[in-house]
C-alpha cells in the first residue's frame, strides 16, 4: 500500500529537477529535455490521481499530453536546428539579442 501522496511528492521532486535544468543549463537541447522531464512529472501525478479516483480521465489527459509533447519536440527541435544554423551554437546565452 503506497499512499498517493508519495507519488505526488516524487512528482514534485522530478518537476523541481526539471525546472532546475531549465534554469542552470545553457545547452538548448538539455533545457528542452528538462521541459520533457517536467511534463513527465505532471503526467505521473495525473496517472496517480486517475488511479485513486478510479477514473480514466487522467489517463486520457496524459495520452494527449504525450501527443502534444511529440508535436512540441518536432517543432522545437526544428527551431533549435535553425538557430544552430544561424548562430553556430545552441548556447541559449548566445541568443540574447533582445536585451533591453
Amino acid at each position: 500500500m503506497v499512499p498517493i501522496n508519495y507519488y505526488i511528492v516524487l512528482s514534485a521532486i522530478l518537476f523541481t529537477i526539471g525546472a532546475l535544468g531549465v534554469l542552470v543549463r545553457r545547452n538548448a537541447l538539455i533545457i528542452f529535455m528538462s521541459i520533457e522531464l517536467m511534463l513527465n512529472a505532471a503526467n505521473l501525478a495525473m496517472v496517480a490521481f486517475s488511479s485513486v479516483l478510479q477514473s480514466f480521465s487522467g489517463q486520457i489527459f496524459v495520452f494527449f499530453v504525450i501527443a502534444v509533447a511529440a508535436a512540441e519536440v518536432a517543432v522545437g527541435l526544428a527551431l533549435i536546428v535553425e538557430i544552430f544554423k544561424s548562430k553556430r551554437s545552441i548556447d541559449v546565452d548566445q541568443i540574447s539579442s533582445l536585451k533591453g
Binding site: 499512499p3 498517493i4 501522496n5 507519488y7 514534485a12 523541481t16 488511479s51 485513486v52
Partner: peptide, 21 residues
C-alpha cells in the same frame, strides 16, 4: 519550491487515498 510542494502535498492534498497494488 520542492520543500513548499512537499509540505503542501503531505499536509493538505485532498484525495489522501492509497493506491492498491
Amino acid at each position: 519550491l520542492a520543500v513548499e510542494a512537499t509540505f503542501i502535498f503531505l499536509t493538505r492534498a485532498r484525495p489522501a487515498g492509497e493506491i492498491a497494488p
